[in-house]
Nucleic acid binder design. Structure first.
Lengths: 209, 209, 209, 209
DNA sequence: AATGAATGAGGGTTCATTCAT
DNA sequence: TATGAATGAACCCTCATTCAT
């Protein structure tokens, strides 16, 4: 007896999730080039052929893994400027998000580094990253703009300054992925960097909370 | 009559340089995995076999390319703490070095990103990077230590703060490599980030220069 | 609908046999180093890649070819001491086996010679050959032991004498592989050598049968 | 000042000897395919190029190594039939030669095995080996012929029987090369095999000396 | 939907040999 | 005579992807 359409749909969803999770793990451990489709297939006990019923290619799978992550981040950060939070609290929220990322998403760190290298050779990935960056930067621009207009911030070059949070986050991510927590204290370093930047932008000196 | 030892040495030096330069360029254009040994060989008009008289493997060549760069940076940064410069000027110097890197070593940017991904899978590369990081960080620790003792800097956690210049530099490098100069202004962003961090560390507020 | 496990098993068995046979032939014709994996693949009309679904490497395939042969021989010779045959007939049986080998397994002769050279550099092959030798020698030791205890054989040093059949067989195999049947009469030479040895071991002189 | 012709000649002879000895050793250790020309060159501290001033190719060098050995053996064995020794003593002499070979020329054993494998693919080597075999066999034929005519030996098929000493020697050589002296007693096994064969050929029984 | 046998292009690496000095 | 830099053909093996069942 053939499966119902609903059953098939559920199978597809479950499998897709399984593959994405296994892929994320294997890519983290082996890197994009080191990971074999058969490794990922084996990790969830399906055949290689099955992989291609869910993702057209290794590249597509890799991008899908990253996409899951990108979408999550984008959803959060895009809401920042529109939220009721004060400028101060917006920056704090970014720090908290970063901290939770460094604490709970640790296995994603190497995948991100692989992804960055990957974007250098894959125009589609590069475009996707660019879009991601622009969205993120726009959020910070909006915050800065509001802060400057309100007289809270010095009139710095928004174009320049709005990249700083991402620069810091990516810098910490990168070094933490490579060096590990024996050499990096990502939460503290992110917080200090963001604080110094934030305070430096303020027109009046405030004590960090 | 065979070539003299001096002649042979010169040939080897010249060839080694040629290969390193060609490799840097090809790795920058094609990436580590995209680059073929034959591409590099062809770029300088030698056979593939010749490559292996100078470097045992593609991996070794890649690491050698990076090593040239690492050594240059290390040499400069290690001298910073011992120089006669004031703390302020030391930080300025870092900025100038970064600026010159972003302006003249642009082709190395993607190679660095690949290298970072590479260190995740290659223990030797990881060790080498770790050593590089520690040396660099130590220089900044020394500067900070001196500044704090002189009362110029707030008594921040040196362990945390000493990583910030590298975090910023690597963050800017990463984003510039991926996004290009249409989306990044590496010189300005590095300068602003360093300034804000620097000023934030000062006990007395000064106007940015 | 995927193939059943039984179907897959049969495919694997058939292919494995095909490859082993083709390999034996190509190794015989071209030698271990002269044979290319692609030659063997072509001989049965499969791709090179398929070869590696069945054997991990050229070395493993070569050893597998020899193993098929070793196992056949071992199975026969190990039964010799326990059989109901008289000592005389056991020796005769060895001769008949040798004869059938020289007549039907002619193509394996050069492969054996290559294998012997191969064992010199490959510890695994050496161990396997050693095991094979010990098993074979043990059979002859048992026969000799029984013969000496029964008073049929002179009390020769069993350790020494038990190697003679193998020495003769391998000596004939070697020379026949190299010189061919224009210069060697392997069946007759094996028989004569074994007869002389056998008779020499007897306590009473008998006419050769 | 250029060297004199005499000096050059001496250099050539010395170097040739050095290379032959180094080659014998390296071929013994690594096998024909495992040995690199550079290994041999390095063993005596000359460049790779120098090798080709003395031997046209790796193959030629390998054959030259074997030729040295073949010539020595041939010289001895060819004299056997014409010597004043009795048939008994001729056989004994063969044994003594074999014994001294197994005791002093041990490092040549693997080279011989390599050589045998080599003859399978190299017509020139095969021809050389055939010639060697025929010469050796002829010596034994002569001895047998004389023995039969003198009534000392049974009228066996000379063609068949004359190969037995070589079969035994090569069989023992082969197994000793592969198994080593933990598993083989080449001197004793050769002696016993030759004795049994020899006695079996005698018309009258004699006690081995 | 799932399987796994099969494909085949692709590239790193080795090493005997050559040749300019 | 000697050197060693350079050559370049050769081949094993990998692995993403396809396809018959």
């Amino acid at each position: 007896m053939p499966r119902t359409a609903a059953q098939n749909k559920e199978i597809r969803q479950t499998r897709t999730q399984q593959i994405l999770e296994a892929a994320r793990q294997v890519f983290a451990e082996q890197g994009f080039y080191g990971a074999r489709m058969s490794d990922i297939a084996q990790a969830i006990g399906v055949s290689q052929g099955t992989m291609y019923h869910y993702f057209r290619s290794k590249d597509e799978l890799f991008l899908a893994v990253l996409n899951v992550w990108n979408e999550q981040i984008k959803a959060i950060v895009q809401q920042l400027p529109n939220s009721d939070l004060s400028t101060v609290d917006k920056f704090w929220l970014v720090n908290q998000l970063a901290a939770s990322f460094f604490e709970t998403g640790e296995d994603l760190l190497p995948v991100l580094v692989e992804y960055w290298a990957y974007t250098l050779r894959n125009p589609e990935a590069a475009a996707s990253f660019r879009e991601f960056f622009i969205l993120m930067q726009q959020s910070f621009k909006d915050i800065l703009q509001a802060g400057i207009e309100a007289g809270e911030f010095k009139p710095v070059d928004i174009e320049i300054a709005s990249a700083l949070p991402l620069i810091i986050l990516d810098g910490v991510t990168l070094l933490t992925a490579i060096l590990g927590k024996d050499f990096m204290q990502p939460v503290e370093q992110t917080r200090l960097a963001q604080e110094l930047v934030f305070e430096g932008l303020l027109t009046k000196m405030e004590e960090p909370v």
